[in-house]
Structure formats: structure tokens, C-alpha cells
Lab assay of single mutants.
Amino acid sequence: HNLTITQGKLFFHYNPKLCLSEIHKMEEVSGTKGRQERNDIALKTNGDQASCENELLKFSYIRTSFDKILLRWEPYWPPDFRDLLGFMLFYKEAPYQNVTEFDGQDACGSNSWTVVDIDPPLRSNDPKSQNHPGWLMRGLKPWTQYAIFVKTLVTFSDERRTYGAKSDIIYVQTDATNPSVPLDPISVSNSSSQIILKWKPPSDPNGNITHYLVFWERQAEDSELFELDYCLKGLKLPSRTWSPPFESEDSQKHNQSEYEDSAGECCSCPKTDSQILKELEESSFRKTFEDYLHNVVFVPRKTSSGTGAEDPRPSRKRRSLGDVGNVTVAVPTVAAFPNTSSTSVPTSPEEHRPFEKVVNKESLVISGLRHFTGYRIELQACNQDTPEERCSVAAYVSARTMPEAKADDIVGPVTHEIFENNVVHLMWQEPKEPNGLIVLYEVSYRRYGDEELHLCVSRKHFALERGCRLRGLSPGNYSVRIRATSLAGNGSWTEPTYFYVTDYLDVPSNIA
């Protein structure tokens, strides 16, 4: 807008934040220059609390790290170098490059900038070799853009010569660093050979998330399962459950009422301010606690030095998902009996873990797994792929695949051998790939016309006998059925096997 004052003059007093240069501009645009008398524009009460600059400061050096910015700028000295009290560095987070010096300023003089007072450097006698002032900004957020400017702080001049310097606002972004852990990993099994893994992005990506790394490792069953005799009275049979499938998407929606109208769909109840505040506090606490764990609990591995020492970490090797089922080394339970199943799973520490690289999504279907087997899954978020990966501390989750139908069934015939004193040795093959492992066998036998009897055969007993022995049988026709019990439950009964026990007292003698 054009402003013209045809008559009258300007009068400025007691404006401590208004620089004289701005008042002189007002004289020019209003056409009143030359009308004012000496005392109409006070030299001592206008701009006496402001830094009124008329020179431009330029930054000469900028260096960044993930949490620091090192700045240096060209030296500046007023005509009387004693008038320079120091520099004021202003900075704040700036997602967009549209910041002005006066953003967030209120009537009390406060604003949204963080201000650092910096002492002037030592003055050199040689004007050509003056030290460049600077400042190291610490405690910054990774991968965050900051708006920065600097200006001088000078003393009051009796001659009211307006001098000083100020830089333009520059924008500097800190470097990326390792992201925080992925949030809320959930693993479920939808079949006997697959596990579905879902997660949420890290709360602090500290860069642009480029991919996720998912490692999985087959877990050995508890050692007590191999040692305890679950045929003993009072000892509860062990059981394991597989990871249940995901709930429906509708039930997972946030901010939804727990109660549904019987007449149909209901609208979600909005969260109160107290609920939102509580969630923010919980989120802040979780982030602080995660940072504490990362800094205190997890110790970084030592990389190899120039002395030739090897990095103890196993090298990563990509495998196809079809090879995942046989990740671990199978060892027989008892070496003397080769027909026992290889369900003991000690994992070799030198073995390469299978892994998958996930790009542009937060889910993965891990296939080719062994049925009813526990897996430990390790999830890392990465925001750099080359020249070397920059990934987060791992988040861990466990899951067990679903049982395989008929995996616990005894394959092959049940054979028998009759000894003296009416002892019958029953023999059968253990299931080759049971659900988890076989903890015991149930032997059901009966003599024709009598009630059915049951015998429990422990895992250890089966390994020693290759089956079991029935003792003290009365003469007669017998039928026997056997079924295995694994961590997933009972298998199917075998087809009945028949044998006849004679009275050993009636056996004919070869003595003449």
C-alpha cells in the first residue's frame, strides 16, 4: 500500500525493539523526510534493546553428524571492536523451508527459537588472519532439518551509529543413524509349514526405512522333555500350542467401542483428552525405555581390526524358502538304536541362519518350516543398504507352526516275539517326523474274553527296548493296539495285532 503524509511529521519514542533503520525507511515511504526535528525521533529510546544489523554474515563451514552440527561463519568486528559482546545463534526444527525470524513471537518477546549466546573469538592483530567464530550444536535429532541463523550482539553506541551483522536463515539436516526397533511384532501360524509375521514401523526411523531383515531359527525343545518319565503317576503330560491366527481386521481397528449394538453396526467412541494424553505418555515412556535398553543392555560386537582377528559373527547367506525346513542338525536320541526319531534339535552355532529381506511392506510369510516346531524370529529395521547396512537392534518374537495331521501315527506293522515265561516283546517304529517329539506310547492289549488293559511306555523305555515287553501273560489269544502321544496330543491307534500265548508248562520236552 502507498502511504503519503502531505502535512505533519513523524514522532517515535520509547520503541526499544524498533531499529532506527526501520524508522528511516518509514520517513522515505511516507514522504516526511526532512520535516522531523532532532528530538522527534529519539536516538536513545528507539532500538536500544534490539540488534540492528546492516551487514550480512556468511557461514564459512558446515559439518553434520547424526546428532551434531558444527558451524563456522566469517569474522565480524565493528569499528570499535570492544562493542562486540558476542553472537546469538538461533535454531529450531523446520520440516519445511518457510521459516521466518519472527515465527511464534508474542507480545512478551518470546519466540519459538532456541538461542545460544556465543563469546567472540580472540581478536588477531592481523586483519587478514582473524579467527572464524563458530559453535557445535549438540543433542539434535537424527535425520531432522533445522533452520539456523546467527547475528551479532553489540553494545549501545553513544554516537548512535547503527552497526551489526546478521546471516540469512539456512537449512541444515542432520545425518541418518540406526533406527529404533520395529514396533509390535506379531507372529502367527496359518499352516503346519508357515508363519505369518506382521509389525509396525519404528517410532524413530532416523532416516528413510529402506528394508527390513527377518531372521528365523528353529528352537530346540526343553531338555526336561527328553529326561522326564511322563508315565509316572502324578506327572502331567506336557503340551505345546501353536500360535493362533490373526483376529479379523475389524476387531483390530483402534479407537473402536468394545460393545456392539445388537441391531447392527455401531460407531466408534472418540477417545477423551485424558485417554489420548495417557497414550502419549505411555508411548514416550516406551521410547525412553527402549533407548535405555539399547544403550545399557546391548553391547556392540567388536569388529575385526587390522591384526587379522576374525569377526566372530557368522556370515549372512541367503537361502531359498524351500530350504528352511531342514535348518537344524538332527541327532538321534540314543545312538545305539537307529530307529528312534531325530527330534532332539541342538543347533550348531556355526550354522548360517536363513533370512529374508523385506522391502516396502511390514509383513512376511515364512514358508518351508517344520510342522509343530518353535521358531525364534528376529526382526531388524534398516535405513541404508549400501555401502553397508545400517540397521536397528533386533526385536524378537516366537511362534510355533501348526501340527501336521497323521504325523504322530505309527507307520509300519507292530511285530512281536514270544519268549519263555510268557513274555512277549512288542516292537514298532517311532514316527519319523512327529509333531514336536514323542513323549510316550500307549499300549492297549486284551486277552479274548477279558477286559482291555493299558500300559504306558516312556520315551526312554522305548529307546532301550525298541518297544516294550509284556510279562506274566496268561495263555490265550491276544490283540494289541499302540498309539503315540506327542507334544500336540495323541496320534491314531494302530491296526490290531494278534498273537497267541501258550502255557509254557505244557511245552513238550526233548528229553527222552
Rank of each mutant, 00 (worst) to 15 (best):
H416W: 06
S262H: 07
E417S: 09
P245F: 14
W242C: 01
G476P: 00
E227C: 10
K233P: 15
G489T: 02
K432H: 12
G306W: 12
S315W: 11
S492W: 00
S341P: 08
I438A: 04
I418A: 10
S283Y: 14
V439F: 09
E362D: 15
Y448V: 10
E433L: 02
F226I: 06
E247N: 14
V411I: 06
C269N: 06
P434G: 06
A405L: 08
L228I: 13
K361T: 11
E351M: 13
L505Q: 07
T340D: 14
R301M: 10
T373L: 05
H352S: 07
G472I: 08
L487G: 02
E388Q: 12
L505D: 08
I410M: 03
T307F: 10
P387S: 06
V331T: 15
L225F: 02
K432Q: 05
T502M: 15
S284I: 00
L505S: 10
K432M: 06
F337W: 11
S257C: 05
Q252P: 07
P387Q: 10
Q380L: 12
N422F: 04
T485Y: 08
M427E: 13
Q256H: 10
K460D: 04
T497V: 08
R447H: 05
I410T: 03
G264A: 15
Y375L: 09
K460V: 15
V393I: 14
C231L: 02
I276Q: 15
V359M: 14
V297T: 10
C382Q: 00
L321R: 07
G308A: 13
S474Q: 11
W493Y: 15
G322Y: 07
K432S: 14
P245G: 11
L237R: 14
R447V: 08
F337M: 14
C267V: 12
I366D: 00
L237E: 15
R481A: 10
L225Q: 09
E452K: 08
F298G: 06
E290D: 10
S474H: 09
S458K: 14
D250Q: 06
F337R: 13
H454N: 04
V501R: 02
T347E: 12
F285D: 05
L235Y: 06
G325H: 08
P496K: 15
I366G: 00
D261P: 13
A484N: 00
P238V: 04
E430W: 03
P338V: 09
T333Q: 15
V296P: 11
E356I: 13
T497Q: 15
S268W: 03
E260C: 07
S344R: 14
S509P: 14
P434F: 06
C391E: 07
Y500F: 03
G306L: 07
R318P: 10
C266Q: 11
N206S: 05
P349R: 14
V214E: 00
S320N: 10
Y504E: 15
E417C: 05
S509F: 12
V457T: 09
P300F: 14
E388N: 13
S479P: 00
T494Y: 01
V423A: 12
V501H: 03
E258T: 13
G374E: 15
P332N: 03
D506C: 04
A394L: 07
L470G: 00
E362G: 03
D323I: 13
K236R: 06
L505T: 06
S341V: 13
S239A: 14
E378M: 04
R466T: 06
E260M: 11
G207P: 03
P244Y: 12
T272P: 09
N421C: 03
T333M: 10
P314Q: 03
Y230F: 06
I482F: 02
L225E: 12
P475S: 08
V214S: 03
F337H: 07
L321M: 11
S257A: 14
T485M: 07
K357M: 11
L505N: 09
V439M: 05
A335K: 11
D273E: 10
L453N: 13
V423M: 07
E249K: 13
D385Q: 14
T303E: 09
P346S: 11
L321A: 12
T340P: 12
T272L: 09
S315Q: 10
R240H: 10
K406P: 07
Y448H: 11
S348E: 12
E420A: 07
E310H: 11
A336P: 11
